[in-house]
Each structure stands twice: as C-alpha cells, then as structure tokens.
Design a protein around this nucleic acid. Structure first.
Lengths: 221, 221
DNA sequence: TTACTGATTATGGTTTCCCGTAAAAAACGG
DNA sequence: CCGTTTTTTACGGGAAACCATAATCAGTAA
C-alpha cells in the first residue's frame, strides 16, 4: 500500500496536477521537491526518521535556474536514491522518449513505471500508481517493442567524449590530445576515426554533421 | 474583461493545472484544445457564432501522435488565429526559451504575454492573465535584455536550406545541386561556403559540426 | 620464451573542405 | 548606352578528413 509519496518535478503547473491525482487516490502524505538535490535529501531524512517514502514520482529533465546543484537530472537522481533506499518504488513521469535512456532505467535501475507526458498523462499516471501499489510494473505499450529491438546503440564514455568534442568545434585531428588529457585509452586518431565510422554506420549517417544532428535528436547531446 | 478562454495544450496534466488557475480567476467559460487544428477550428466557429474568445493560451510544441494535422505547432497556430480574429489576446505558455522564436512572436505577431513553464509557472500565469485582462503586456524580466541585444541572427531561407542539407548528411560539394533543384539563387559552392562562414562567425563556431549543434540548441533545426 | 590473436597506432593516398583571389555576371545610376 | 559597384561564380593551393593497409603493442596459451 502506498501512503507516502515524494514528487520530484520542477514545473509548478505539473505539480498542481500531480497533487490532484494523488489526492484523488486518497494519498494524503505528499511531499514535493523542485530540485534533485532536495529530493535526495528528503529521501535520506525520511528514511533516517523511520518515515520513509513508499513511492517516488520523478521527472527526468530539470531547468537550470542558476542555483548550484550536485544532481542535475532524473537519470542521476534515480541511482542515487536507489543507493539510499533500494526498495523505494519509482515512477518516472517525463516527456522524454529516448529508448537508450528508458532502457537503462528499466534494466539497470529497475524503475517500477514510466508515464510519458502527453495527451492522457494524468489518467495514465493514475493507472500507473494503482498498478505499482499492487507491486506491478507499468510501462506504455509502445515500450514493449522498443525493448525488444536492441536498437539502442551503446554509446561508451569514449564515444560520448568524441561526440562532445566534435560538437564543441574541436577539429578531429586535435581530439586525440584532448582525450589523452582526460586519460582516455585508446586515444589515437585512428581509433577516433574508427569509432566515428562505427557510430555513423549505426545511426545511418554519412557525415559528422548528420551524426551530431542525430545525437541531438535522440537526446545524448 | 476576460470571460471566455481557449487553452491549447496537449499535455493533460498541464491542462488540469491551467483549468484550476482559470477557475481561481473566476473564469468559467474555458475550452480546451489538444491539437492546433482543433484550436483553429474552435476560434473560427466561436467567432462565426458571435461568441468569440477573449483570450487564447497556447503551448508551442505539440506531440505528434500520428493523426494528420495541418498546423503542427504554436508558431504556426498564432498567425493562423490572428488572421481569423486579429483582436484576440494571446498568451504563450511554453518551456521553449528560444530568442529568435520569442522575438518573432512578440514583434511580428504581437502576442500579449509569454510565461515560461518552470518553477513558478502557475503563479506567473495568474499574474499574466490579470495583466492581459487590463490590456497590459506580460513578459518575463529576462526577455528585456534578450530583446535589446539584436543578437538573434537572421537566418534566411537560403541559410536554412544549407543547414538542413548539411544536417541530412549531404556533402558540402553536393549542396549547390540540391539548391538548384529547389530554385535557390545563388547556388554556387562559393556562395554556400561564404554563407556557412558567415553563420559560423555569427554563432562563434569553428566547425560545421558545432554549427549544427548550435542550430539544434537555439531551435532552428 | 614463442607463437597467436586482437586491439591500437602509424602511414600514405585520395577526397573533401577551407580560404583567398580573380574572373564573370548582375544591378544600378547617369 | 557605358561605367561603376556589388554580387556571384570559378579556380587553386593548403589543410583536414576519409579510407585502406601495414606496423606495433598487449594479452594469452602452449
């Protein structure tokens, strides 16, 4: 049974709606966090006081309003709270529709549900919470085939570093030097070229410009 | 005085919150549209029946759920409704923070307010509606300096065509052929190079990869 | 140690991109 | 119509990217 919920969402308007949904479900103990750090702290404190949360509902993207934050997005928050309270149920409520990210959240961090912000999100969330309270998982139908096709290309840290440098305007020939500075191994120009080739092939791109565009589209940049 | 409002927003959760805000303001006649086409139609119908709306609150981005739509985003919806009912007050309610787009909406389409989705959006929207009902404009403070610095680089259709082709993976040397196919003039490789140079300079980019990334960031791609 | 395998790095040739300059074309004014 | 200015195009040298191949290195097992 779910009695105590923490909502982690920075948009006030969405919080209003979430609050209503939770009230409708008869859940009275609802806390809100507008920042990931805040959420992390609240989970910690609640656990230490023996009044731990039963469910965490969190967004993935958070606006940067200038205040210094250690955890800046839901993808980092989730492993952080799992670390503190492994049995906490987690529902992700986000507009993000990125197979790689979602797959990781489900398979690696064992989230209990995912609701896509959209034309029916409030009703869906209601269903999701109900399901999760019965120890069931809840994911959109569209996820099923997404999970099957292991289409999600695995970008290693190495790949990401290369892509980031490219997007920052570093010439390809200078990338090895930057990689070495950050202790990446391999770091030769050949390795960079080889990896770029692989990524382009994987994403059906013929040029680096297109690769950057694709990476922006699927949300890894 | 504002009595009749049309809310154009595809996220159910946000609609819930907007409804509450409008109710708080004592506005009882509130319609919702989940698609831009639907909104356009409703404005038309209401006007023809002599029961026109006083205020339109609209998002800018709408999820594509597969259904065929003529108008797919708020940027297109706004001129379309202005065309039908020029005196309609318009408040944009969006997370989009793109100088070029905002500038265009304010200067060219004379929107009455803009509220950024975020940590205080519900309260801000309340204020915005109040202001607009008094025939005042409402924009975030952050917009003032944004509007001053004419930083928003003017991308011509020509520029856009080049950027799009690059992002699609067309090699620079093949771009002239594509431009000619679409009756762009000039179309020579030199002209393409010159324009790319200009754009890179304007956006402080050293390489095309970085240019593509920047264009994605500011929302023109 | 030696032989073998796979990964990384080095090298060279070809294409593409970059940038400056010159030729050609178009726009403009008298 | 001609001359001037501006824009567009053409061309060429040098740098970077691309691609295939060869050399080197690291790890493993006999």
């Amino acid at each position: 049974m779910i009695n105590k919920v923490l909502v982690v969402e920075d948009h006030e308007s969405v919080n209003v709606s979430l609050q209503r949904t939770l009230t409708e479900l008869g859940i009275v103990e609802v806390d809100h966090a507008y920042y990931c750090d805040e959420a992390h702290r609240k989970v910690n404190v609640a656990l230490q006081r023996g009044q731990s949360y039963d469910l965490l509902i969190t967004d993935l993207s958070f606006d940067d309003d200038g205040s210094e934050q250690k955890i800046t997005d839901g993808e980092s928050l989730i492993p952080a709270v799992r670390n503190v309270q492994p049995d906490l149920k987690i529902i992700v409520f986000s507009a993000k529709n990125n197979p790689a990210v979602i797959k990781k959240l489900i398979e690696k961090h064992a989230i209990d549900g995912y609701v896509l912000k959209g034309r029916n999100d409030a009703k869906e969330l209601l269903t999701a919470i109900t399901e999760v309270s019965r120890n069931q998982l809840y994911f959109p139908r569209s996820f099923q085939q997404m999970m099957k096709q292991n289409n999600a290309f695995d970008f290693t840290d190495f790949d990401l570093a290369i892509i980031r440098l490219l997007a920052e305007g570093v010439p390809q020939k200078d990338i090895p030097a930057h990689l070495q500075k950050n202790n990446f191994r391999p770091s030769s120009l050949s390795s960079v070229e080889k990896r770029l080739n692989k990524m382009r092939e994987e994403l059906n791109c013929t040029k680096n410009e297109q690769l950057i565009a694709s990476c922006k589209d699927i949300g890894i940049l």
